[in-house]
């Protein structure tokens, strides 16, 4: 009977911790296939995944690289490093603003830099829709994404931030419609009525605005 009880405990414990191991179906993918840079069209496309947690929880992160310290804190989990993305934007001729410092994060500064038109698409959608459509906000405003730059701080902090939903000193791109620190009062969510389900691959396209 004792052996039976021990076996039961072990079986139940294994059941709980079955998810502890990383998924064996995870495939190591070449990062170059996850991001395309079209210098003629002046656009960068990158693969991301939906994080369903932010359908119900607020966040200030739009896209963050999965291996960054904020990799699980964004509506879309980026599969490409923010440093490579920064280089890709330079390659299409975008000019970084680099005007926000960490000290400015509480001062209400707007991020500067070249304007980017950001759209998203996924399998089955059949079209591109504005990035703004996949975000809901407690204080909705038209989205104005700027190439903030911030490479130095991105390397120091290693947060993985690719697209912040308000002006930011670390994110490679940010939404200048909201000044720094505004996310303390404004709440952003992933739009569950528009986005596909958790884990779905979504392509984000950044185009240099004319």
């Amino acid at each position: 009977m004792k052996i039976l009880r021990i076996a039961l405990i072990v079986a139940l414990s294994l059941l709980v911790f079955a998810g502890c191991t990383s998924n064996s179906t995870d495939v190591v993918t070449d990062e170059s296939s996850l991001m395309t840079v079209d210098k003629e069209k002046k656009e960068v496309s990158m693969q991301t995944e939906v994080n369903g947690k932010y359908f119900t929880e607020p966040t200030r992160h739009g896209v963050v690289y999965k291996d960054g310290s904020n990799g699980e804190k964004s509506v879309l989990r980026g599969l490409v490093s923010e440093k490579e993305f920064h280089q890709a934007l330079l390659d299409i001729g975008a000019q970084a603003g680099n005007n926000v410092t960490l000290e400015d994060m509480a001062k209400g500064i707007k991020v500067e830099g070249d304007k980017l038109d950001v759209t998203v698409t996924w399998e089955g959608l059949g079209k591109e829709i504005p990035f703004a459509d996949i975000i809901t906000s407690s204080d909705p405003r038209p989205m104005d994404v700027r190439f903030g730059g911030n490479l130095e701080r991105a390397e120091q902090k290693n947060t993985g931030c690719i697209l912040c939903l308000d002006s930011c000193a670390v994110g490679i791109t940010s939404n200048s419609s909201y000044v720094t620190g505004e996310s303390n009062t404004v709440k952003f969510f992933g739009n569950k009525d528009v986005l596909p389900e958790d884990g779905t691959k979504v392509t984000v396209i950044f185009r240099l605005a004319q």
Binding site: G19, C20, N23, T25, G52, T56, E57, K66, R77, G199
Partner: peptide, 23 residues
């Protein structure tokens, strides 16, 4: 009722670094 079906699972998933396991 809505958040309870997502949040504990999301917290556990984050703790285990198993982002590909569904809620």
């Amino acid at each position: 009722s809505e958040r309870i079906s997502v949040l504990p699972a999301a917290i556990i998933r984050e703790g285990l670094h198993s982002t590909r396991v569904s809620f």
